[in-house]
């Protein structure tokens, strides 16, 4: 009797382990599955890792954008890419070290919050190559990527000034930190440049994750006669969009200008005038490619602006906005690129 049970068990274990290993074949090479045929030909032995902040790779913002960039890089060049998601402050350093101690060729940290952890890891591992988006780290083996948000904001300011009927325009910011101030400064300068009579009201909500605050702020602005609001406030901006959608349904002619990604995809083109897009993905691709070609420049801060096509209007709005507005935008864009106009960083 006992023997019988034993044999049944051993057969079961064997077949189970066979099944397990069989199932494992497919995902064992996650890198190959998405890249398709061309990647297989020029497969690279380079490995690039990326550490997200607490937002994770589905945050609809820069983490997602950066990861999309790396995935695109993988399908183009066959470079191996991988990400590690951080669930809390304590995990930034070990997550970075996962890649660094395993001798990956380049490790990305996404966001301002990773600046200190990257500095620490970079100093402890002088041979490793690291890079950061939206933060500046002074270390000989770190490339910092910063964006000239003020230049892109200037252009959406021009759009707002041209499209506004009431000549009253709003700006809703998140927390008052240097990066958000660059948005405000550029936006104000853009509005003034295109229409000196227009007035800009700006309010900081003090939070990036409070849609309710965004909604009430937008509500008071629209009630004051503002007809276009530019928000640079992360999730708080969702409330701005909700308020605009509600008013639009009641026949009011109000608009929102989105931020970071093309927000008309989420909120619809009937309330989204345009979006100030930050091309984190392209920046990540560019720096990673340079590294792969042996052109990694540590200790350098790359400032990406209009000239590099790293900030600007969303693609979809280039189709929906009137031609004369776009023409004006192009004129200002040319002036900024040529250096004729310098956009301020502080409001």
């Amino acid at each position: 009797m006992n023997k019988k049970i034993l044999s049944v068990i051993s057969v079961a274990t064997l077949s189970l382990s066979l099944a397990l290993t069989g199932c494992g074949q497919k995902p064992a090479e996650p890198s190959g599955s998405e890249s398709g045929a061309p990647a297989a030909e020029q497969k690279s032995d380079k490995k690039i890792g990326m550490v997200t902040d607490v937002g994770g790779v589905n945050d609809n913002s820069f983490n997602q954008s950066a990861w999309e960039g790396l995935q695109k890089l993988q399908s183009e060049t066959g470079i191996n890419v991988q990400y590690a998601q951080s669930t809390g402050d304590a995990e930034y350093v070990p997550n970075l070290n996962t890649f660094v101690k395993d001798k990956w060729d380049l490790t990305w940290g996404i966001g301002f919050l990773l600046a200190d952890p990257i500095k620490q890891v970079a100093e402890q591992n002088p041979d490793a190559k690291l890079a950061i988006v939206d933060g500046e780290v002074a270390a000989p083996n770190v490339t910092s990527v910063m964006f000239k948000e003020q230049e892109g904001s200037f252009l959406v300011g021009v759009v707002a000034a041209e499209m506004s009927k009431s000549n009253k325009i709003g700006f809703v910011g998140g927390i008052k930190i240097p990066v958000i101030e660059r948005f405000e400064a550029g936006f104000k300068a853009g509005v003034k440049a295109a229409n000196p009579n227009a007035e800009v009201v700006s309010i900081y909500t003090g939070a990036f994750d409070k849609p309710d605050l965004g909604k009430s702020t937008a509500s008071s602005m629209y009630s004051q006669g503002v007809d276009i609001i530019f928000h640079a406030s992360g999730g708080t901006g969702d409330g701005v969009f909700n308020e605009a959608t509600a008013r639009k349904k009641n026949g009011a002619d109000v608009w929102v200008i989105g931020v970071d990604k093309d927000q008309s995809i989420n909120f619809g083109e009937d309330v989204t005038l345009t979006s100030m897009v930050k091309k984190v993905d392209e920046a990540v691709i560019q720096v990673s490619k340079d590294m792969a070609e042996g052109k990694f420049e540590g200790g350098k801060t790359i400032n990406l602006g209009l000239k590099d096509n790293a900030v600007g209007l969303s693609e979809s709005s280039l189709k929906t906005l009137p031609a004369e507005v776009l023409k004006k935008v192009d004129e200002f864009k040319a002036k900024i690129i040529s250096g004729e106009i310098t956009v301020p960083e502080k409001p």
Binding site: S17, L20, T21, C23, G24, Q25, P27, A28
Partner: peptide, 14 residues
């Protein structure tokens, strides 16, 4: 947990 991973198409032993 292994069955959950199997259902998702991953190798639990690995």
């Amino acid at each position: 947990g292994a069955f959950a991973m199997l259902a998702g198409g991953f190798n639990p032993i690995e």
